[in-house]
Nucleic acid binder design. Structure first.
Length: 274
DNA sequence: GCGGTATGCCTAA
DNA sequence: TAGGCCTACCGCG
């Protein structure tokens, strides 16, 4: 689940569910220092939740911040309060009057200072889902970089929030081969790539899942739709657009999916020597 | 029940 | 580049 859309949706939902009223913060698994935020009674008040890329920041009164990063396995569960006892693997439980949020399997769930939060943000590139996103630095970096665009999109220092599914899908939709060096991409193409990423991430926030195809509509909210039904190339054997074979290979230790028909390589003199 | 895999990312070498 | 972290799910038998 966790690319940028999941994180922003969680920020929105958790803020709506929990903000303003006292809640009980706990660490059923015992690996999160809940008492550093809540005190021994476990009570705390959530002021707001902020998302940046794949990072979440929960602000508690008066000056406490909990940083959450889901990593590959992390998941939230939303339960009606009063909720049943948490499972032993629950890293953090936020129990509000109406809703209880359980967090399982995150890479990070830790109390941070404002300075530490600033350090985390300083390592992150612009996030297309944020109102204040400024893609200028991303454009500049890509325009002068020989690094493959497929690698750049996964580098959270350059652009934050894109994960392995969106990477494959946006490059396919823009008809860019993942191995294309950044500097080979025309400025206009790059802008349209950014806009597409923003639009698809926004759609992901609304639909609570990654959907990059046009026609797909979910009939029942909980209906399980196979991954390959909602993508063009990711996780597929054949390209949804042209029916050609999808090439799967590893790029920066992650599986890349590309349709060599729809996404032709750009051959340049420099490119040939690489 | 077991092994492989997954939408992430850090560190050691 | 490989290994480690950490959880859930799926196909296999």
């Amino acid at each position: 689940m966790p690319e940028g859309h999941t994180i922003h949706r969680a920020a929105r939902d958790h803020q709506q569910d929990l903000r303003g009223n006292p809640l009980r913060l706990s660490s059923p698994q015992g690996r999160f220092e809940a008492e550093a935020v809540a005190g021994p009674d476990g009570e705390a008040t959530l002021l707001r939740v902020e998302a940046w890329g794949k990072h979440l920041f929960y602000f508690f009164a008066p000056e406490q911040i909990v940083h959450v990063h889901l990593g590959l396995f992390g998941k939230f569960r939303r339960l009606r309060s009063p909720a049943p006892p948490p499972r032993s693997v629950t890293r953090m439980r936020l129990a509000g009057a109406h809703w209880t949020i359980d967090l399982v399997g995150p890479t990070a769930c830790e109390v941070v200072t404002r300075e530490q939060m600033a350090e985390i943000l300083a390592r992150l590139g612009p996030d297309p889902l944020r109102e204040d996103a400024d893609p200028t630095a991303f454009y500049h970096y890509v325009a002068q970089s020989r690094v493959a665009i497929g690698a750049i999109l996964m580098d959270q220092r350059r652009i934050s929030g894109v994960g392995n599914v969106y990477r494959a899908e946006v490059l396919h939709l823009e008809e860019i081969h993942p191995d294309t060096p950044g500097s080979e991409i025309a400025p206009q193409k790059l802008e349209s790539l950014w806009q597409l990423i923003a639009a698809l991430l926004r759609r992901g926030v609304e639909e609570k899942r990654i959907v990059t195809t046009r026609g797909l509509t979910i009939k029942k909210p909980r209906e399980r739709v196979p991954r390959a039904e909602s993508t063009h190339v990711y996780g597929r054997g054949v390209c949804r657009s042209c029916g050609g074979e999808v090439n799967r290979y590893m790029l920066r230790a992650r599986a890349m999916y590309v349709c060599e028909q729809c996404q032709p390589r750009i051959i340049t003199d420099e490119g040939r020597s690489n």
